[in-house]
């Protein structure tokens, strides 16, 4: 990405007027008001709540507006174990989120299935939805989640915006596991 423009402000040159690239300005708006969709599934959700609460205060990073409606949120924080029973629900909620959208996989379970290598647990939420930032830990400390959020902000700041608008709309890229699911050839084996 060559146009990795960030907003800059030089008080000697610019007074009340700021001149910058459109990409930089839009990304600046976006990255500082990432509204999370808290996909609180298991234990990690407790740390997610702790991140939002008094001590760690996620609002310092502009992400305190937890929206339980996917339509109003920008980043889905998958906090907890995604089971097979829950997997397609998560995917459906992700699909309902309006673009641009990002995903943070919080904790070992959401990233890889974690300590639950079993018949019931999806081995990583990236098998059904694309993930931008993986946060390690079981559970990750709130600081780690905040660091993940900062990493995501850095990623958002580098994304091309204006050049994408000119392109014709594309089918969203879907991860392989989800595609395989729709294939009608999958036969249910006999018990």
């Amino acid at each position: 990405m060559k146009q990795a423009a960030e907003i800059q402000y030089d008080s000697r040159l610019e007074g009340d007027l700021v001149v910058t690239r459109l990409d930089a300005a839009i990304n600046w708006f976006r990255k500082n008001s990432l509204w999370p969709m808290p996909m609180g599934l298991a234990c990690c959700a407790i740390e997610l709540m702790a991140t939002g609460a008094s001590r760690f205060d996620i609002s310092r990073f502009g992400a305190e507006v937890m929206r339980f409606s996917p339509r109003q949120s920008d980043v889905m924080i998958v906090a907890g174990t995604v089971t097979y029973k829950m997997a397609l629900v998560v995917k459906r909620i992700y699909d309902q989120m309006a673009d641009p959208k990002w995903v943070i996989a919080m904790g070992a379970c959401a990233s890889t299935g974690g300590m639950y290598r079993s018949y019931a647990v999806l081995q990583g939420v990236d098998r059904v939805i694309p993930v931008d930032v993986y946060v390690a830990g079981c559970p990750p400390r709130p600081e780690a989640l905040l660091d993940g959020l900062i990493k995501l902000q850095a990623k958002v700041a580098r994304e091309p915006v204006a050049s994408v608008w000119k392109q014709p709309p594309q089918e969203p890229v879907r991860p392989a596991a989800a595609l395989a699911l729709d294939a009608p050839t999958q036969a249910v084996p006999k018990p």
Binding site: K85, M86, Y116, R117, A120, V121
Partner: peptide, 21 residues
Amino acid sequence: GYLHRGDEKIAENMTYTQFIP
């Protein structure tokens, strides 16, 4: 059941101490 992770099956596959976490 949306958070059924198979704890009881997992327990059958490990030692007593390993199940504490």
